[in-house]
Design a protein around this nucleic acid. Sequence first.
DNA 1: AGCACGCCGACT
DNA 2: GTCGGCGTGCTC
Length: 732
Amino acid sequence: MPIIDVAVPVPLRQTFSYSSEQLVAVGARVKVPFGRRQLVGVVVASRAEPEHSSENDTPVKLKAIAEVLDNSPLFNTTLIALAQWLSGYYHHPIGEVWATLMPSKLRKGALLSDAQPGWMLSEEGHDPKAIAGLRGKKQQQCLELLNQGPLASDEVKAQFSAAVIKALEDKGLIEATLITHPPAGDWQHFTLQQTPPTASTEQGVAIAAINQQPGQFVPYLLDGVTGSGKTEVYLQVIEPVLRQGRQVLILVPEIGLTPQTVGRFERRFGIAVGVLHSQMTDTARLQVWQQARRGDIGIIIGTRSAIFTPLKSPGMIIVDEEHDESFKQQDGLRYHARDLAVKRAHNEQVPLILGSATPSLESLNNALNKRYTHLTLQHRAGGASHTQLKVLDSRDQPLHAGIAQGLISIMRSHLQQGNQVLVFLNRRGFAPAVLCHHCGQSVDCASCERPFTYHKSQGRLQCHHCGASRRMPTQCGSCHSADLQTSGIGTEQLEQGLGKLFPDIAQVRIDSDAVKGKDKLINRLDEINARKYQLLVGTQILSKGHHFPHVTLVVVLDCDGALFSADFRAAEKLAQLITQLAGRAGRANKPGEMWLQTDNPGHPLLQDLINNGFSHFARQALQERKLAQLPPLSSQAVFRGEANDASQVINFLQQVKQCYGVSADVAHGSFIGPLPCLIEKRQGRFRFMLIMQCQQRAALHSWLKHHLKDVESLPLAAKVRWSLDIDPVDFS
DNA sequence: AGCACGCCGACT
DNA sequence: GTCGGCGTGCTC
């Protein structure tokens, strides 16, 4: 009887064998009995006969698989190869790798069918009187449309609102049905909906370079300042790819995926764009996943996990804003979608474009080493001038709402000219701490031991690490003094202070508290560009992908934290943030300026960035990384552990270190730690990390792999929650 | 990870 | 005398 090896979704670094009536294709899902439960796994190997085991081997009796869920492989060979590579590279259990590759419906065992949901007329709906009897014009039109035959829900939705459909369904005039033969995507025969703008010289060079080598793996770093027209380059290079009937996969950061981004691709080519992001329903997700797999859609644009989308005929992969940290998954299988894109493009033999105005040092290093083709766009489209960067020394200056006196007059002059001003502060809430004025004790979150952030609008304290919330106390927890004062400034307070400083100026705050609703962010951004507000206050969100043509002044209030951070990447992140923010201003012939308020005006990082720009800074930073033997000039992995008992975690990580200690000198590797994570305690558990570092990536990996079994069999490994993070980007 | 089995404390 | 605490061990 055939034997099937199955990757089962459990945190065990092995596969499990089952007997089966017939051979099952590798890459198909099966339902299998596992202990006392039934799980959905993926077939990773299938063989006709049990291997002839030597006589003294104890014969294991295999359980039989319960059900074959896919008649043909659900995943093609490149995705199977990708899963295997993931399991090896990230040292992660293969079953869990497969579980993260699958849309949740498939993970739960949903059967895949070619039928897609649609609407058709019910018996009553066929009655001609039904249409006449309807009041709503839209409902009548919808009914007429369906009178011509059943239609996929997607297409009905494109023309009629959900309310119309619901009304007709409630009246019993239409009913849900399944459409078995979905229209074959005819996307390769599009006609351009708009005449592409003439490419600039730089764009032309980039486009020509990319078009020159189609259908093979060539990685490009498209290093273009904000406003230089990277998206136009994407649009022009994907056109010939689409015309050949080959699909394009575009990855974008979590926050950058706005309808505008999608709209730009739809408008140019007039074809449907498949969208994948975390807020979609499972059904919608699976729908796009299937369309991509069948080849029904030509363009797929999505966030991190979209890198796992199956493609029938891949033609190109693009990672936009490739430096963005949201491409790194921070739990479970800690993959980096950008790195994975490189791997996948290689497997699929298609070109790969990594685009950014502020490339990650990893990608820049690869470009400088000629592993990637370096394409640069240094000029802003339409000749808009670059934003002027300046440092404002806030030492010994009176501060109002956290802003130095000198800056306020600069802001005033910009506002008086009718321009918009953007004030950036990466701290939401009213104040980052509440202190007792009597004993100096801060009000801390019990489970994280970090100060609560005060949110005045809710009158509550919020822990920004674990999300815990409590009422504002009336007295100090340790000395019972009633004299509690807020300390520091968050966006909420900044907004209030600016309201007092500029009472006649319309102001808006953009942070995750203020734009919680579904379309709120998009609406606010539209309002800003319609000049409804003149003063914009906000966090991170403002730095990502949105353009503010009327902003002529950007003010950054909290540079100092990043200048002296324990995280060696903090400077890189700050430089990226500042450069991205600077790119938001000074469009449309309005020269912009940007002021960085700091107590350390002479700091070399700030000076380098201001005087020489990001690309010089980045090259300088790479030199420093080289001297310090830090990534990307070395390779890192981090063991993290957390438990209620801090000493248990430290002991565990010490033991991990000992597991590897013997061969450390051989691999020229070293350890840092165990040391507390930057967020030392979260949700009541103490967190520590052990950093492993090697100059050679391959050495690190073989070293890691060699002793991982020893780590797993440590008694403490069962008591401490631990994880392994390859190529970590965040040490919190 | 689940989910069992298993062996010691406060309850009807 | 039981219900239930979570320690330990296994999953083809």
